[in-house]
Amino acid sequence: MPRVTIRDVAARAGVSTATVSRALSGARPVSPEVADQVHRAVQDLGYSGNGIASALRRSRTDTVGMVVPSVANPFFTSLVENVEYALQQAGRQLFLCSSRSDPALEAQRLRSLVARQVDGIVISPVHGTESTEAVAWAAAELPLVQVDRYVSGVPSDWVGVDDEAGMVLVMDHLAARGARSAAFVSSRLTNSSTELRLAGFRRHTERLGIAVDDEHVLLGEYSIDWGREGTARLLRSRRLPDAIVCADDLIALGVVQACSEAGVEVPGDVLVTGFDDIPFSALSAPPLTTVRQPQELIATEAVRLLQRALEPSVVEPARISLSPSLVVRASTGPAPRQAHPGAPVSGTSGRRPR
């Protein structure tokens, strides 16, 4: 029996092959009447090009959309790779979109994914408030899971790292290294992750008796350039703190570079920590002590929650906060003897080298 082609479907439906493609992919809208003609032709002929016919019979396309703030940020690059692998194991394909940290573009991306009839959406929202309307709309249209960052007031699943626990690991480690004063260099408070990390920093510096000057909390953006600029501001202040805590690894890499260029020794003059454990963090000079996020587990849980949301049973949205680990490297001094250098640990001991 000869294989049914898209031309056969077009002839049966009385439309062009381009119209058939649009009706099946959802890339551009067609009228309900034309869509019905195409779908009936697909079913009558048993067309199964690219698996579309079987997906239509299940009212699914086996595709999932994902929107991240930036594909240039290594953290999100790795997260996307892990989500794509988890989806592949579940028999689904990924449509990836970058919002370029722009809430308006993010809303456009979400509308596009819904128009493409993806089965669900995984998103790390750009902004804690400006993203809310678009994310809420998309969640009302399709199953949606928020990862890493989240917006409040949207009835959707969320999975990410426990930012509070991450800051506990960092601050306890720095206190054990002898830090008695600290600075915090971060992006502006536009998303949940940044807000939680700053809140954790303030809470645990107070708990540990670590001094923080008002001028030593610097808010800019997640980038190496901002880490360099923030360091320049700290170096102009009346006294360099014992430690510089960074809200992500890109900022921390910029801090380490700027210190080196200014003749400030890391960790001899100042301790530096990051957050995320991107691949470059182990390659800096010195290698960076940082909080490792369990990205593979985050991705696996996100896909599991999405699969659950596609089932007919109604369940309450889940909030899954995963435990991080601390990777101790040379930017805060030598790793403890009982641990392999660069291995995740839950705590450290020892005095800061002077």
Rank of each mutant, 00 (worst) to 15 (best):
V15E: 02
L196S: 15
I123F: 10
L189G: 04
L288W: 07
A72H: 10
L218W: 02
E84P: 14
A10D: 02
D213S: 06
S25D: 01
G274I: 07
F76S: 01
T61L: 10
T205C: 10
D162W: 13
V20R: 06
S186A: 13
S59T: 12
W158K: 05
A318Q: 13
L253Y: 03
Q293M: 13
T332L: 10
R57A: 13
S323I: 00
L196W: 03
T77D: 06
S131F: 05
H204M: 05
E311M: 15
A35S: 10
S152D: 15
Q146L: 08
A285K: 10
P69V: 05
V161S: 12
R352D: 04
S323P: 05
S321F: 01
V20K: 11
P324I: 04
F76M: 07
Y47E: 00
E81C: 12
R109T: 04
D277T: 12
S192E: 09
D62M: 14
S193G: 14
H173P: 05
D277R: 14
V126H: 02
L208A: 11
Q257I: 09
P344C: 08
V126Y: 06
G120V: 08
S181V: 00
S193D: 07
G263K: 09
G342I: 05
L56S: 06
G342D: 13
A299F: 08
A13M: 05
R177V: 07
R352I: 02
M167E: 15
V71N: 03
V255F: 05
V145T: 07
L196H: 07
A10Q: 07
P294A: 01
C97Y: 11
V291G: 07
V118R: 06
R149G: 06
V30Y: 05
D102L: 01
D62C: 08
Q293I: 11
R3N: 13
V126W: 01
V135S: 08
R180E: 00
R238F: 02
H39C: 06
Q37K: 09
P287C: 11
M1H: 15
S346K: 11
P103V: 10
D213K: 08
Q43T: 15
E33K: 04
V272P: 02
H127W: 01
G153C: 12
